[in-house]
Each structure stands twice: as structure tokens, then as C-alpha cells.
Amino acid sequence: MEGARPNPPCDPGAPRPPQPRGIKMLVRVFFVLVCAAALSVFYVLLCREAVGQRDGSAYTAPAALSLQGYSRVPDGKPLRRAPCRRCAVVSSSGQMLGSHLGRAIDGQECVLRMNHAPTAGFEEDVGTRSTVRVVSHTSVPLLLRNQPYFFQQSRDTVYVIWGPSRKMSREKGSPTYRALLKVLEMYPYLQLYTLTEEKMEYCDDVFQNETGKNRVKSGSFLSTGWFTMILAMELCEHICVFGMVSDSYCREKNHSSVPYHYFEKGRLDECRMYLVHEKAPRAGHRFITEKTIFSRWAKRKDIIFTHPSWAGG
């Protein structure tokens, strides 16, 4: 009709002149590129907003710690890694059975385990991740029996081995140390560390300062849990201990009966083992005494105990 205004170009109902197919394709490609660029800029700004400011100051990644007393096999360099903000220390106790804590454990930034405690078959209760595994010299043969599981599948795990000089000395070529060298020949990517003699003496001194008793003269052996807690306090800002009972637990009348290790069902009873060792005149792990000390440490460090839950102090 004469005098009628044509439909505006942004009106979705307006008829559009036919365009060559090639031009349509170029327009679509250009539109996709523009959208992708806009999303990339938005993502960068969002990430910068999330990590660029904390408490009003610019955020910087934590510097790597150099943990003295943990000596790399075979070159002797100290353990270096970034500190962990949140750590799970996973007990090998039968308390873990039926806990359904696997997801909570794996949700922590770092996970510390002990000796040869497996995760396979117990994932729902203990999780799957292992950042650090602290191992007694007496448990090294148990790791060697299942090398594919511990050393081939767990490439990201740091292994920290402790033991007396007669078993661990580099200079004297002690048996456990020689075994570790052979493991490295087969799995050269492994991160293997041993405690130095000075670190072992330091751990003895901490025990004496806390108890007033000389470890050797009192016939006491430190447990792997002791060395794990000391390492955790050096490495972690916040520590959540899973499956460790309090020092009074085994003296309670209605305490539950669980296996000493969650992966050895029907074997030793945990509390019976603790009480026997606590009273042993020599060669005894002072499990209950150690837990009393851990409780004191929880007043100075950010440590909580769960399943069973109890307060440090």
C-alpha cells in the first residue's frame, strides 16, 4: 500500500531478503566467536573476583614448606610441598567400619593414612585418596607384598617411613633402607622419604616433654599415629582426625568392641590391645597416653576428632 511503513529490521516478523548461503555461515561463525570471547572475559573476571581478594588484600598462593627431618630417598633432600589448609588423618581403627565417611575424607584437601591400611573394598567408609602415607619400618614388608596396589596405582602419594637407625641408616646400608632402594629401581617416580635420626630424637624429646618420662627407659615405643600427628601439625592448618578414640574411651563400661584394624575383621579387639600395651612394662605402644597428649595439642592447634567425636582439652 502506498504510504505504508516497512517493518523495522529488528522485528522478528519482518520478511528478510534471501542471503547467499556462504554469507549466512560467516554471520553464524562471527556470532559464535563473539559469544565465546564474551564468556571467556566473564570467566576470567569471575575467577579474579573469587581468588584475587581475601580479607581485603590480594591473595597469593602459599609458599612451599621445606619440612626438615624428612629425607628423600636416595638424594636426602628435605620434603617440600605447599601447606594443606584442611587435612584428614584417617585412623586404621575398626571404628571406621560402617562410618560412611569416605566422601567427607576425600573432600579434604590432603589425606594422611598409616602403614598398609587399604582403601580398596572400604571406600565408602575410608575414602580413596592418599596424599601422605606414614609407614613404620615393620610395615614396609607388608607394602612390598602388594607393590602394584601401593606403588603402581598410588603415584601421587608421598611415603614417609620411620624406624630406628639400625633399620633405616643410609650410611650403614640397613635392611629397610636397602629395600626402599630396590622399590625405587622398579618405581622410579615414587616419592619416598625417611625420618632422619635427628627427627626421631626430636619425636622422643616431644614424648618426654609431654609425659616427663624417657621413652627408652620407660619401655615405650612410639606409634605410627604419633609420627603422623607430628607431621600433620607441621603440614596442615586444620586437622580432622577420623576414627580415633579418646584416652578415656576404653575405660568406659559401654564402649563398643571393634577390631584393632578395620581391614582385619575378627582379629584383635582395639580396646584390649590398647590396655595391654598401656600396662606393658616394656616394648609397649602407649596408645592411651598418646591420645591424652593429642587432646592437649588440640587446645593449641586446630584439631578436631570425629567418629567418635570428642573434644580436645
Rank of each mutant, 00 (worst) to 15 (best):
A179F: 04
A117F: 13
N115W: 11
Y189L: 08
G121Q: 07
E185M: 12
V158P: 02
L190N: 10
V241E: 00
C236E: 04
T228I: 05
S220R: 15
G219R: 04
S174V: 13
N146C: 13
C240F: 00
A120Y: 13
L143S: 07
M244R: 09
Y149M: 00
P118R: 11
Y149C: 02
F221D: 09
Y189N: 12
I230H: 00
G219P: 04
N115K: 13
H116E: 09
P175D: 12
V132H: 03
V158W: 04
V158F: 05
S154W: 07
R133P: 01
S136Q: 07
S223L: 01
L231D: 00
D205R: 15
N146R: 15
M168T: 13
T138I: 11
L235H: 10
Q208E: 13
L143R: 02
Y159C: 01
S130R: 13
S139V: 14
L192E: 07
P188L: 14
T228G: 03
G173H: 10
L195I: 10
Q153N: 12
T138V: 12
E197S: 12
T211N: 10
D205Y: 06
M229I: 12
L222C: 06
P148Q: 14
I161H: 01
L144G: 10
Y149V: 04
P118S: 12
Y177W: 14
S174N: 12
K172W: 08
Q152Y: 08
S165D: 11
T157F: 10
Y159F: 15
Y177L: 14
S154A: 11
G212Q: 11
K167G: 07
R170H: 10
Y193K: 04
L192R: 10
I161L: 09
F221A: 05
M114F: 03
S218R: 10
G219F: 02
V206N: 02
L181V: 14
L231W: 01
P118E: 08
S154P: 00
Q147T: 15
T224K: 03
V126F: 05
T196G: 05
Y149I: 03
C203K: 00
F151Y: 12
G225Y: 01
Y187F: 15
F151P: 05
E234R: 10
D205P: 06
M200R: 09
P188C: 15
M244C: 08
E123C: 05
E171G: 13
H116A: 15
S130E: 10
L142P: 07
T157W: 09
T224R: 03
L235W: 05
T157E: 07
Y193L: 02
T228C: 03
V158S: 04
F221K: 14
R166M: 05
K217F: 02
Q152G: 07
E234F: 06
K172A: 15
N146A: 15
D125V: 14
F151H: 06
T224Y: 00
L222E: 02
F242R: 06
G225P: 00
V206K: 07
E185N: 10
S220G: 09
